[in-house]
Amino acid sequence: MKNLTMKTTALLVALVIMGTTFTSCKSGPKDDAVKAAVETALLSNPHIAEAAVTVEKGVATISGQVPDDATKADVDKTVAGVAGVKSVVNNLTVVPETPSVPVAATDVLTNAVKDATKDFPTVTATVNDGVVTLKGEIQKANLQKLMMALNALKPKKVDNSQLVIK
């Protein structure tokens, strides 16, 4: 979540900068001020992942992505409450957030992989950034058992493409 929030903030900051640069020439000064106020108001909502704001003659158009309908409705209220906004066109699309897949810490995973491969001395396993790479050889009859054990350890990925299966 921390990561997401940082990303959100960075995106919004980028959008604010881009917005001021690109639209200042075509809209009037009043619209620009309203647009800046809308963007500031939206910054206070941590759920808005991506939103772009345009204001033309007091009509604020918001596009981008939010994680749920409630956030979309919140944006309506927030934007409508900004001084100078006459009406709001809410073009936000709802894209549910998917939390990132939990991957075991490297030391935990390394120890767990060592335990899981102990009974297969012809297999060598290395762990790098959550990826378990298998080399050496294994009997076909034992492959499923080994893969079941490794898949249960919360790896990012199990790469056995270099493992010789006999």
Binding site: K140, L143, Q144, M147, N151, A152, K154, P155, K156, K157, V158, D159, N160, S161, I165
Partner: peptide
């Protein structure tokens, strides 16, 4: 195993 023989693609983690 039937869909990905020998689980060699490395594109699925099933727990």
């Amino acid at each position: 195993e039937r869909l990905d023989p020998n689980y060699s693609s490395g594109d699925l983690v099933m727990n």
